[in-house]
Design a protein around this nucleic acid. Structure first.
Length: 263
DNA sequence: ATGGTGGAAGGTCCA
């Protein structure tokens, strides 16, 4: 089973790029974040034409929004108003096998890393705390959690650990909370299962760099976590960096994972 | 210390 997660930064603007990813990677499941479209305006016909007959969308006008695209049927799991907001940052499904897929778009958190001065940062911290709560009491089903978590936890998940310690996405308080959330359900980091922690690994490069490839000041904001029972079935995990170099790209690269499915 | 770019808007907000 192949899954892809991608912060697409407007699904309507990048349908052609999504088609290319689907054609080249042939994923069974795609989790999108920042679809930026209300449900009534979601390009459902185009998505079905790509081979995804089963789609969950949770969108709003202009901001946020997630979608889960699947070639096989699933059951939608109950939604949740994270932090008491209806801001379309999570969706979850279960396949007939019992396997659950959770798609997350964690708040970016604004610029100032102080929850007392910056409501967006406070929201981000509260959101990750709620992830810890929810999954510490979750059922024992096999699960895949993927999406834009907007936090780069390891030193080599950013281009300069020292220079980003006060930059939102890599501050110690966020990293600590994400680490706690990961431990709360014994999640396994699928990308780092294949790429050792001493190697740089990024999924996002800012639009604001003059030459993003030359500068290579990236961060690993997008993640794939699996429950421990799936660890032995991890076959591959990879950042599809080439998509960041396409014309009119998202600032995030897609991340792909292959999981062997026993009969 | 600042600003750099991009998307959805059709103001500005958000990333």
């Amino acid at each position: 089973m192949r899954l892809v997660t991608w912060n697409i930064n407007s699904v309507r603007l990048r349908l052609d790029q999504l088609r290319r990813i689907v054609r080249e990677q042939e994923p069974d499941v795609v989790c999108l974040q920042e679809t930026k479209v209300a449900d009534g305006s979601f390009p459902m016909g185009e998505i079905r034409d790509m081979g995804f007959d089963h789609v969950m969308i949770r969108g709003m006008k202009s901001y946020n929004g997630i979608a889960i695209l699947s070639k096989t049927p699933f059951t939608a799991l109950p939604g949740r108003d994270w932090c008491g907001k209806q801001d379309c940052r999570h969706g979850a499904i279960a396949f007939d096998s019992g396997l659950e897929v959770h798609n997350f778009y964690v708040p970016a958190g604004g610029d100032l890393p102080d929850p007392d001065e910056n409501d967006k940062f406070a929201h981000k911290l509260a959101f990750v705390d709620e992830m810890t709560e929810v999954f510490s009491t979750a059922n024992g089903a096999s699960k895949i959690l993927m999406g834009d978590l907007n936090i780069a936890p390891l030193e080599n998940d950013v281009w300069s650990h020292k220079q980003l310690l006060k930059i939102v996405s890599h501050t110690p308080v966020e990293v600590e909370k994400l680490t706690r959330a990961k431990q709360a359900h014994d999640w396994v980091d699928a990308l780092r299962h294949f790429v050792p922690a001493d190697r740089k690994l990024y999924t996002w490069w800012s639009y604001r760099a003059r030459d993003w490839q030359a500068a290579d000041k990236g961060r690993r904001l997008d993640h794939v976590w699996v429950t421990p029972d799936l660890t032995g079935r991890l076959e591959a995990a990879e950042v599809l960096k080439e998509a960041r170099a396409w014309e009119k790209p998202s600032d995030h690269a897609p991340v792909m994972v292959d999981i062997g499915m026993s009969a």
